[in-house]
Design a protein around this nucleic acid. Structure first.
Length: 154
DNA sequence: GCCAACGTTGGC
DNA sequence: GCCAACGTTGGC
Protein backbone atom coordinates (compact mmCIF):
# COMPACT_ATOMS: atom_id res chain seq x y z
CA UNK A 1 0.00 0.00 0.00
CA UNK A 2 1.39 3.34 -1.05
CA UNK A 3 0.66 6.99 -0.40
CA UNK A 4 0.17 9.60 -3.11
CA UNK A 5 -0.54 13.27 -3.52
CA UNK A 6 -2.92 14.13 -6.37
CA UNK A 7 -3.21 17.73 -7.53
CA UNK A 8 -6.39 19.24 -8.84
CA UNK A 9 -7.56 22.74 -9.54
CA UNK A 10 -10.60 23.16 -7.31
CA UNK A 11 -12.34 25.27 -9.96
CA UNK A 12 -12.19 22.16 -12.11
CA UNK A 13 -12.57 19.34 -9.58
CA UNK A 14 -12.39 19.89 -5.82
CA UNK A 15 -12.46 17.61 -2.81
CA UNK A 16 -16.03 18.74 -2.12
CA UNK A 17 -16.94 17.68 -5.67
CA UNK A 18 -15.55 14.24 -4.86
CA UNK A 19 -17.41 14.22 -1.55
CA UNK A 20 -20.68 14.81 -3.37
CA UNK A 21 -19.97 12.17 -6.01
CA UNK A 22 -18.43 9.74 -3.49
CA UNK A 23 -16.34 8.16 -6.23
CA UNK A 24 -14.90 9.44 -9.50
CA UNK A 25 -12.31 8.68 -12.18
CA UNK A 26 -9.15 10.78 -11.88
CA UNK A 27 -9.08 11.84 -15.50
CA UNK A 28 -7.33 14.46 -17.57
CA UNK A 29 -3.75 13.61 -16.60
CA UNK A 30 -1.63 14.55 -19.63
CA UNK A 31 1.89 14.26 -18.32
CA UNK A 32 3.95 11.17 -19.02
CA UNK A 33 5.59 10.83 -15.62
CA UNK A 34 2.26 11.24 -13.85
CA UNK A 35 0.71 8.81 -16.36
CA UNK A 36 3.37 6.23 -15.60
CA UNK A 37 2.68 6.47 -11.88
CA UNK A 38 -1.06 6.12 -12.48
CA UNK A 39 -0.70 3.23 -14.87
CA UNK A 40 2.02 1.26 -13.13
CA UNK A 41 2.24 2.12 -9.46
CA UNK A 42 -1.13 3.30 -8.13
CA UNK A 43 -3.05 0.33 -6.73
CA UNK A 44 -6.41 -0.35 -5.17
CA UNK A 45 -6.29 0.57 -1.50
CA UNK A 46 -3.61 3.22 -1.88
CA UNK A 47 -4.27 6.44 -0.01
CA UNK A 48 -4.40 9.79 -1.79
CA UNK A 49 -3.78 13.21 -0.30
CA UNK A 50 -6.06 15.58 -2.21
CA UNK A 51 -4.21 18.80 -3.10
CA UNK A 52 -5.75 21.99 -4.44
CA UNK A 53 -3.55 23.92 -6.88
CA UNK A 54 -3.89 27.20 -8.77
CA UNK A 55 -6.22 28.69 -6.19
CA UNK A 56 -6.22 31.24 -3.36
CA UNK A 57 -4.53 28.93 -0.84
CA UNK A 58 -2.83 26.00 -2.55
CA UNK A 59 -2.44 23.02 -0.26
CA UNK A 60 -3.56 19.60 0.95
CA UNK A 61 -7.22 19.51 1.92
CA UNK A 62 -8.15 15.90 2.65
CA UNK A 63 -7.94 12.24 1.75
CA UNK A 64 -9.27 9.80 -0.82
CA UNK A 65 -8.69 6.12 -1.50
CA UNK A 66 -8.00 4.32 -4.76
CA UNK A 67 -10.90 2.02 -5.65
CA UNK A 68 -9.95 0.93 -9.15
CA UNK A 69 -6.57 0.49 -10.81
CA UNK A 70 -5.60 2.06 -14.13
CA UNK A 71 -7.79 1.84 -17.20
CA UNK A 72 -7.76 3.99 -20.37
CA UNK A 73 -8.85 7.63 -20.10
CA UNK A 74 -11.83 7.91 -22.43
CA UNK A 75 -11.75 11.72 -22.27
CA UNK A 76 -8.56 11.61 -24.38
CA UNK A 77 -10.36 10.40 -27.51
CA UNK A 78 -13.50 12.45 -26.90
CA UNK A 79 -13.04 15.59 -29.03
CA UNK A 80 -15.53 17.45 -26.83
CA UNK A 81 -13.72 16.75 -23.54
CA UNK A 82 -11.52 19.21 -21.67
CA UNK A 83 -8.30 17.51 -22.75
CA UNK A 84 -8.72 15.71 -26.07
CA UNK A 85 -5.64 14.00 -27.50
CA UNK A 86 -5.94 12.69 -31.06
CA UNK A 87 -2.88 10.51 -30.48
CA UNK A 88 -4.77 8.42 -27.95
CA UNK A 89 -7.16 5.84 -29.37
CA UNK A 90 -9.25 2.99 -28.04
CA UNK A 91 -6.92 0.53 -29.73
CA UNK A 92 -3.81 2.22 -28.40
CA UNK A 93 -4.62 4.38 -25.37
CA UNK A 94 -1.98 6.85 -24.30
CA UNK A 95 -3.58 8.15 -21.11
CA UNK A 96 -5.01 6.39 -18.06
CA UNK A 97 -7.20 7.04 -15.07
CA UNK A 98 -7.74 5.42 -11.70
CA UNK A 99 -10.93 5.65 -9.66
CA UNK A 100 -10.82 7.37 -6.29
CA UNK A 101 -13.36 7.51 -3.48
CA UNK A 102 -13.86 10.32 -0.99
CA UNK A 103 -12.44 9.57 2.44
CA UNK A 104 -12.30 12.74 4.51
CA UNK A 105 -11.69 16.47 4.69
CA UNK A 106 -8.85 17.52 6.93
CA UNK A 107 -9.96 19.38 10.03
CA UNK A 108 -7.80 22.21 8.74
CA UNK A 109 -6.27 22.55 5.27
CA UNK A 110 -2.49 22.25 5.09
CA UNK A 111 -1.25 25.11 2.90
CA UNK A 112 1.77 24.75 0.65
CA UNK A 113 3.50 27.35 2.84
CA UNK A 114 3.27 24.92 5.77
CA UNK A 115 4.37 21.95 3.66
CA UNK A 116 7.49 23.96 2.81
CA UNK A 117 8.38 24.10 6.50
CA UNK A 118 8.03 20.37 7.20
CA UNK A 119 11.38 18.58 7.32
CA UNK A 120 9.73 15.45 5.92
CA UNK A 121 9.15 17.26 2.63
CA UNK A 122 12.73 18.32 2.06
CA UNK A 123 13.55 16.94 -1.37
CA UNK A 124 9.96 16.24 -2.38
CA UNK A 125 9.08 17.38 -5.90
CA UNK A 126 6.03 19.02 -4.34
CA UNK A 127 8.05 21.89 -2.93
CA UNK A 128 10.46 22.25 -5.82
CA UNK A 129 10.26 25.50 -7.66
CA UNK A 130 8.47 25.15 -10.97
CA UNK A 131 7.32 21.64 -10.19
CA UNK A 132 4.52 20.52 -12.49
CA UNK A 133 4.08 16.89 -11.51
CA UNK A 134 0.43 16.27 -10.61
CA UNK A 135 0.80 12.73 -9.23
CA UNK A 136 3.45 12.64 -6.53
CA UNK A 137 4.48 9.66 -4.40
CA UNK A 138 4.61 10.30 -0.66
CA UNK A 139 6.63 8.45 1.94
CA UNK A 140 4.85 7.16 5.03
CA UNK A 141 6.49 9.88 7.11
CA UNK A 142 5.40 12.57 4.66
CA UNK A 143 1.88 11.20 4.79
CA UNK A 144 1.90 11.15 8.60
CA UNK A 145 3.19 14.72 8.68
CA UNK A 146 0.40 15.99 6.42
CA UNK A 147 -2.27 14.18 8.43
CA UNK A 148 -0.77 15.53 11.65
CA UNK A 149 -0.87 19.10 10.33
CA UNK A 150 -4.38 18.61 9.01
CA UNK A 151 -5.58 17.35 12.40
CA UNK A 152 -4.54 20.38 14.42
CA UNK A 153 -7.11 22.27 16.44
CA UNK A 154 -8.07 25.53 14.76
C1' DG B 1 19.79 13.72 -31.39
C1' DC B 2 19.57 18.63 -30.76
C1' DC B 3 17.24 22.61 -29.58
C1' DA B 4 14.11 26.60 -30.39
C1' DA B 5 9.40 27.56 -30.16
C1' DC B 6 5.34 26.88 -28.11
C1' DG B 7 1.62 25.91 -24.82
C1' DT B 8 0.74 24.89 -20.04
C1' DT B 9 1.30 24.85 -15.07
C1' DG B 10 1.07 26.97 -10.83
C1' DG B 11 2.55 30.22 -7.20
C1' DC B 12 2.19 34.80 -6.25
C1' DG C 1 -2.95 38.97 -14.52
C1' DC C 2 1.98 38.10 -14.47
C1' DC C 3 5.75 35.44 -15.29
C1' DA C 4 9.20 31.78 -14.33
C1' DA C 5 9.73 27.15 -15.12
C1' DC C 6 8.67 23.25 -17.32
C1' DG C 7 7.32 19.39 -20.83
C1' DT C 8 6.30 18.47 -25.58
C1' DT C 9 6.65 19.13 -30.39
C1' DG C 10 8.71 19.41 -34.69
C1' DG C 11 12.23 21.11 -37.92
C1' DC C 12 16.71 20.23 -38.96
Amino acid sequence: MRYWLFKSEPDCFSLSDLRKKKRAPWDGVRNFQARNYLRDDVHVGDIVVFYHSSCAVPGAVGLATVTKAAYPDATAWDPHSEHPDPKSTRANPRWFVVDVAYKQDFKVPVPLTILHTLPEFAGSPLIQRGNRLSIIPLTASQFRAVVREGSRAQ
